[in-house]
Design a protein around this nucleic acid. Structure first.
Lengths: 341, 341
DNA sequence: AGCATAACTTTACGCGCGTAAAATTTTTGT
DNA sequence: ACAAAAATTTTACGCGCGTAAAGTTATGCT
């Protein structure tokens, strides 16, 4: 095998005994050629492993098969995990995913979008930074490129939005905490990165009112995406200020909770639901790491599979021309009970 | 601005008053044209924001400006972090990095390399899976594409290898542990993912012998890349078996240590160097998360900046034609003392 | 000013493939 | 078996740019 080096489709067509346009058609959709033709091509393919030049292909196609996946922070395993699942969805459907991260920085996000334009992708799956995003740039990008927004909604642009049902998240876990112990305080960043945090705070307030419990929101300082460190420092400050009005803390997200757990440890405060524990801590997200904190973190988990599949399918159907009005799909989470609360 | 839509370089050349070949030359190297010509182009650039079509460019260039970055597992923040730094190095030098993850699966790694060929990259920065990699595929890939191996060395192929000095890592932290308490046991996976683990075990054995201390290696079961869970389960088993011969455990890597900490928590074993603690646990890697474990993890940290910069620079110099014989560069780590040991 | 040289313009070709139109062959239905 | 439909082949053009060659203009130096 591989006796002759194939340089282009012309050569490959010649040795497979098929005309070049038909071979071209085959590579665009193997099912669009006659079975016997297809068999002959695939046989030749095994002996000469030829692959069309991506650059030449994409130069001429109106619709590229490239799909961009953009997340705010790839170092966060939550985003890495969901990006991985999205990647698989793309490959399954014959698209070529390319992964990008804004690395928590708005200017990077703009850069990414800029270079993404150059890729002329068939579509983009975008999880925006959120508050710090350049909304004008985002909106313009969405107007030019078929973009599905996921994880964090920043406005009614793009094809649609797919994310988690933050309201259900918080209501559900607040309910659990109220039923099993003291009602929770809510621990969050004063200026959170994305609007999900606002929804969660509001859901907490609503739930507490509904349950007839006094609400208490603790908003801590800190900018940026180093949530663990922000949670840790904010936790120390909250303890110093005596800000925790009950022995139960619901954190706006798991990374904040992880930081708070560290702060508790550093102060010698035992966390959990045992009788020897003085505080209960719960998170929200089902962060990949939450299983391994000490104590393991009680949290409400994203349905990673459903979110990624729904997002990907929505994009693909839009690419295939199925126009639907903008809509927001929010998927429920599942409570994960562990020993922290 | 943007009154006329520029479709190609021809049009842009026309409105900037420069010939197309010169404009082409400018985009390949802005410094290669006369300053005044350059100024005129850049002025026109501001009013019409034209960018050459990547696909058309790469079709004709012998040397693409694309660089592939491949890591074994992007969900691991260690790799996400080093990938981020490598990305920046590439962009600084005018390359276009594309990120890939093998997601811990050998067949994915092969797929990634396959699709990477299609990109016809100028070079590739590759951190192989290690033991489970298809070495033949890897070697063949390296023969075809300028590839620099980093993090984990799997043989003398590729341009060179850049990674951390595992021997120094382990020797250094073993020394620290011996000087500050009981000599450590070594906690590792029986069949580790990559050869770094073997080097670390050997360095541990050598160091213990040199220090005149009895060595004890605890090799736990478990396959795959879910190190935390493997460490947790292995930890439980080791406790049950009474495998820890001293009160100090040096883990082969931080993720294993994180799992062991969870196991300790679950068994009510207090970890740290305080008098009320019954075990000390240390890791290796300086994992981004190690700061936030409970207790915070004492570890020896990769020099992320040095490794990524050295790796990137080696690749770029090879791309620029500076041929050097294969060599292995190993960079020392820095001890990070925290409360776990 | 005069000349060598560097920079630029013009012209022209090629890269590898998509794709349209028309001609031809194969398959399908009856 | 024969016409209609589907698939394929032929032919031909275009995409946007790199790049080489030859001619032209600008620059630097004495």
């Amino acid at each position: 095998m591989r006796m002759t080096k194939i340089r282009n489709m012309e050569e490959f067509a010649a040795i497979s005994g098929i005309s070049r346009p038909t071979v071209s058609k085959y590579f665009n959709d193997p099912g669009s050629v006659r079975p016997r033709t297809r068999a002959r091509i695939e046989e030749a393919l095994k002996e000469h492993d030829y692959r069309p030049n991506i650059y030449a292909v994409n130069q001429n196609r109106k619709l590229t098969k490239a799909v961009g996946i953009v997340v705010p922070l790839l170092v966060d395993p939550y985003f890495a995990e969901i990006a991985r699942k999205l990647e698989r969805c793309c490959i399954e459907k014959g698209y070529r995913p390319t992964l990008f991260s804004a690395h928590g920085q708005p200017d990077h996000e703009v850069e990414v979008l800029e270079s993404l334009r150059g890729l002329k992708p068939a579509g983009v799956l975008l999880a925006p930074l959120g508050r710090s995003s350049d909304h004008a740039v985002l909106e313009k990008f969405c107007a030019d490129v078929p973009t599905l927004i996921f994880d964090s909604s920043v406005g009614e642009f793009g094809l649609s939005f797919v994310g988690s049902d933050n309201q259900q998240f918080t209501t559900h876990i607040t309910d659990y905490l109220c039923r099993t112990g003291e009602p929770p305080c809510f621990f969050e960043m004063k200026t959170p990165a994305n609007p999900n945090a606002h929804r969660r705070r509001q859901a907490y307030l609503d739930a507490m009112e509904q349950f007839g419990q006094p609400a208490k929101v603790i908003s801590i300082d800190g900018e940026g995406w180093e949530f663990e460190e922000i949670g840790r420092q904010g936790g120390h400050k909250a303890f110093e200020d005596g800000a925790f009005s009950t022995n139960t803390v619901l954190c706006s997200n798991d990374r904040l909770a992880i930081g708070l757990l560290t702060a508790c440890y550093e102060r010698g405060i035992k966390v959990g639901r045992g009788s020897d524990c003085s505080i209960r801590v719960a998170g929200q997200d089902g962060h990949p790491h939450s299983r391994f904190t000490c104590p393991p973190l009680t949290t409400i988990s994203h349905d990673y599979d459903a979110v990624s599949r729904t997002a990907a399918d929505s994009l693909f159907s839009a690419i295939d021309g199925h126009v639907t009005p903008w809509k927001s799909t929010r998927i429920e989470g599942k409570l994960t009970l562990r020993s922290s609360a």
